[in-house]
């Protein structure tokens, strides 16, 4: 299943999604009477099918975390709409909103900060059930089930333990179990293993892959780590300055990237082998300012291939067949 053609059973669809934040005003803005904005997310469309796992790649500041928060209704879009299982989520209130929250969960980045240090592990895991009014009698069963899904021992082994008494790898699994305890259909995992040591990271990644396969969970993995995305996601989106610049099946996209930015990302990653290419990076400079909505391609000032047209006309996301889409005039 790829997201480029609309999946047969779409779960999350976003169209024309934008989020802008007020930028700090400069003196010249005051004189000109302008209120500048930063476009963190600038008119993106995406579609995640039931049971599909999608990776969202990009550098810090490209808008990937904002996209995740928008999809979970943790922040409101400035424009565009999001539908979850066919229902628009922007007007959800009261019981409908609670029902949505039960089905769409967030897995936090830093397991050391994500759990209340004064709650026992049991309470941490049961809290989402309490908050959404699930009947108390079923709590223990649901918690045990979630623990088994993330391959942790049963609750009796965590009796009376607090988060600081667990290791980082165990904590990250607890954070994942807490998201799973409500039996959601969709999770957003924001940099789920970036805080973990290598030896335990592999264990958590394996659990994520397994959970996705056995529960048929749809997931959005937000990361700057290409290897993670390669390992857990069937489809990958690449973001640059608030826009999706390329998307397609992960394996193809990383093997033969079409957008110059994706090519630079793939090229930049060192691999854990002694013999590796030391080709020069096909990219210069840093991410430019996200103030306002510039004309033309946003990547052109760093792009080694940029031509005159790139400054004039913004490249649309074009379909190239085989599930691949790219926003580049030259691809």
């Amino acid at each position: 299943m790829t997201s480029a053609q609309t999946p047969t059973h779409p779960l999350v669809t976003a169209s024309g999604l934008s989020k802008r934040f007020a930028a700090p005003r400069r003196l010249s803005d005051l004189f000109n009477g302008q209120r500048p904005h930063i476009y963190a997310v600038d008119g993106i469309d995406l579609c995640i099918g039931k049971g599909e796992s999608v990776g969202l790649l990009g550098e810090s500041g490209c808008g990937k975390t904002t996209t995740g928060r928008l999809l979970l209704k943790l922040t409101e879009p400035s424009a565009g709409s999001i539908a979850f299982d066919g229902v628009a989520i922007d007007t959800l209130k009261g019981n409908d909103l609670t029902a949505f929250r039960k089905r769409a969960q967030l897995v936090f980045q830093n397991p050391f900060d994500a759990l209340n240090p004064r709650f026992t592990i049991e309470r941490v895991l049961a809290e989402p059930l309490v908050n959404t009014g699930v009947e108390r009698a079923s709590h223990r069963d649901k918690v045990e089930k979630a623990l088994a899904q993330v391959r942790l021992p049963p609750l009796s082994r965590f009796e009376g333990l607090f988060p600081h008494q667990l290791s980082g790898g165990q904590l990250q699994r607890i954070v994942l179990a807490r998201a799973l305890v409500l039996e959601p259909d969709f999770i957003v995992a924001d940099e789920p293993v970036s805080m973990l040591d290598v030896s335990v990271r592999a264990g958590v990644l394996n659990v994520m892959r397994e959970v996705r396969a056995t529960l048929g969970l749809a997931a959005l993995y937000i990361s700057h780590d290409l290897a993670l995305v390669r390992y857990v996601c069937s489809t990958t989106l690449v973001m640059y300055l608030g826009k999706i610049v390329e998307q397609g099946p992960t394996a193809d996209l990383l093997k033969m990237p079409l957008h110059p930015y994706t090519r630079a990302l793939v090229n930049a990653v060192p691999v854990p082998r002694v013999d590796q290419s030391h080709e020069a990076l096909p990219i210069i400079g840093n991410v430019s300012d996200a103030r306002g909505q510039p004309r033309g391609c946003r990547f052109r000032d760093r792009c080694p291939m940029a031509v005159a047209r790139c400054a004039e006309e913004e490249p649309p996301l074009r379909d190239l067949g085989q599930g691949r889409q790219v926003a580049c005039h030259l691809a």
Binding site: V198, S199, R201, A202, G203, L205, N206, A227, Y231, L254
Partner: peptide, 23 residues
Amino acid sequence: MGLTNAFPDLESAAHELVPIDGS
């Protein structure tokens, strides 16, 4: 050996990563 196995690699990421249990 464990460290080198636990490391995801772009080209050969399809095989399963091998974690080191414990701390």
